[in-house]
């Protein structure tokens, strides 16, 4: 597998360096930040080979046979957990789903106690979602070296596997990243997806990343990530190749950050009309679940440009690829 050099490793910030072992192999997948282009490309290439599995009589490969994967979700999620579960099962792993919000943590047990208990049952890989940023990092730091951790979304921080399935979908539909103009639209401030997408797009070398949304939903420091910011849709969508919508959480609709649903849709909701200035072959993406009529019109979500369902399908292959990448060559460590 692709590995990073000792020099590269030393230059990484600690929250990215923790993902690599001393040989430079990717061992956890917590953030896209700091993962080199070759490693991301290899994950996409491997996912490509997993794409054909849907058509097999037996949709499984034995790569993770005998391994135990725990989906540890401290925050509710159906879609992400289901695709992780399916991905792990197609790799022949045994899978345990823990909706921990309703279990031990509510009895006062800390996250680390829960994890250590599960580790004592010889878990090989944790898939972690939590509403607090840094939860998967915390877990990765406290587990023995042979246990792997995948971040399935932590607070506002990162959602690296979502970003990777988005990258896979872009490459599948556009053939590559060079020369592409990409817009990310909506609630950037609260979005872990947007942060991971920006890191991935920048690493893979798109031409331009634009961020579009109301000023109240765009973090002030975002330009330092190499993006251009606008709150004008027709300006931001001009000649765009890829439109990445974000989900607007309705709980933000209290009038503080966003005026009203109607007002938001008329200004930032993606419609056929607003897309007229985009490239004629532009694609539209959304991580789901969709708020129809709030951030995106139904006619666009179900229209010719939409690749939303491809994203869901691709999510399984991409998560298989990430799990296989992390779990390969683990025997020597034990």
């Amino acid at each position: 597998m692709a590995r990073i050099s000792p020099d590269q490793l030393r230059s990484l910030p600690p929250d990215s360096a923790i993902q690599f072992d001393s040989q430079g192999h990717l061992r956890h997948f917590l953030t896209i930040s700091g993962v080199p282009r070759e490693a991301l490309t290899q994950i996409l290439d491997t996912a490509e080979s997993f794409m054909t599995f849907g058509e097999r009589e037996i949709k499984k490969v034995p790569l993770l046979r005998g391994k135990t994967v725990v989906n540890l979700f401290f925050e509710a999620s159906t879609r992400t957990r289901t695709t992780f579960e399916l991905a792990a099962k197609r790799l022949s792993a045994d899978v345990i789903n823990m909706n921990a919000a309703r279990m031990s943590t509510s009895k006062g047990e800390t996250i680390l106690d829960t994890v250590r208990t599960l580790e004592a049952m010889h878990t090989d890989l944790f898939v972690v979602r939590d509403s607090a940023s840094g939860a998967s990092h915390l877990i990765a730091r406290h587990l023995p070296e042979y246990v792997r951790v995948i971040n399935a979304g932590d607070g506002r921080h990162a959602h690296p596997t979502q970003a990777m399935l988005d990258m896979f979908t872009i490459r599948q539909k556009k053939g590559g990243f060079e020369g592409l103009k990409v817009a990310i639209i909506g609630d950037i401030l609260h979005s872990r997806v947007a942060r991971s997408q920006i890191h991935a797009l920048a690493t893979l070398g798109v031409d331009e990343i634009r961020v579009i949304g109301p000023r109240t939903l765009i973090p002030t420091e975002i330009e330092s990530m190499g993006v251009t910011v606008t709150s004008n849709m027709s300006e931001g969508l001009r000649d765009i190749d890829v439109v990445m919508m974000l989900r607007l959480q309705r709980e933000r609709m209290d009038g503080q950050l966003v005026p009203s649903e109607q007002e938001y849709f008329s200004q930032y909701g993606l419609t056929e009309e607003k897309l007229q200035v985009a490239d004629t072959k532009a694609i539209v993406m959304h991580p789901g679940p969709i708020n129809r009529g709030l951030e995106i019109a139904s006619s666009v979500a179900d229209g010719d440009r939409s690749v939303i369902l491809s994203q869901v399908t691709n999510g399984i292959a991409v998560r298989m690829s990430i799990m296989a990448t992390l779990m390969g060559g683990t025997e020597a460590v034990r």
Partner: peptide, 16 residues
Amino acid sequence: SFYRDDFSRVGLNPKV
């Protein structure tokens, strides 16, 4: 590559 018996020793073939 996905059926090899040395996956846990050497990892995945990068050019699968």
